[in-house]
């Protein structure tokens, strides 16, 4: 149990420190790297409490795909300079009050949520939950997700699909005058319809009709 708690404290302190560093670090690319470190340590915590499926999915989805896109955008747009402007120039005063208001609201919401959870009298103790140890937690998530919550699950998938199509439609623009390759006509080209052998008589030349 000792090793378990040591690892718990290591991972959770890394998670907290890197979460702070995400907001504090000046360079935006560094922020994204700290965000990735945060994701990884949190998925380690998930694995430590025995939720290995959620931990791995977190690694695959957030670290392997979402954070790569973050990094992509941050590197391409050069947000680092903008961020520095916000914090160090005289323009910064505009953003500080709004940020403060939002952070205070979120802080009180967190207090309400945490205290409500802590002092709720009829909360079921975790030990009394009926946990079937014979099946892995991948199976048990599957049993719940595809039976009781199938409609909500499908609905969330549809929402994501609609969001994706919406983003594509918003950024799509039809450009005129662009030459596109037709792969089918390229592959289905035969020797007969592209090459023609002609005997050229001297001083006559060849007449093409194209």
């Amino acid at each position: 149990m000792l090793a378990h708690s040591i690892f718990f404290y290591i991972f959770s302190s890394i998670a907290i420190i890197s979460a702070i560093m995400v907001t504090v670090s000046k360079n935006t690319v560094h922020s994204v790297f700290f965000l990735i470190l945060d994701f990884i340590s949190i998925s380690c915590l998930f694995i430590m409490i025995g939720a290995e499926f959620i931990g791995m999915i977190m690694l695959i989805v957030y670290v392997g795909a979402v954070a790569v896109l973050f990094l992509f955008v941050v590197m391409m747009l050069n947000v680092a300079q903008q961020k520095n402007q916000w914090f160090s120039s005289s323009e910064s005063s505009k953003h500080v009050p709004t940020g403060l208001i939002i952070s205070v609201i979120i802080f009180f919401e967190l207090i309400i949520v945490i205290s409500g959870w802590k002092y709720k009298p009829d909360l079921i103790p975790a030990m009394s939950l009926n946990i079937n140890n014979d099946i892995t937690n991948t199976h048990s998530i599957g049993y719940v997700l595809y039976t009781d919550y199938i409609h909500i699950f499908q609905l969330s998938g549809m929402i994501l699909l609609v969001a994706m199509i919406g983003a594509i439609v918003l950024t799509f623009r039809q450009r005129s005058g662009v030459k596109k390759q037709s792969y089918f006509s390229q592959i289905s080209r035969e020797r007969q319809d592209s090459i023609e052998m002609v005997d050229v008589e001297s001083n006559k030349g060849v007449k093409f009709d194209d």
Partner: peptide, 11 residues
Amino acid sequence: DINVGILYLFA
């Protein structure tokens, strides 16, 4: 020999 070996490899 973990339960989610293939997911680990993929991750």
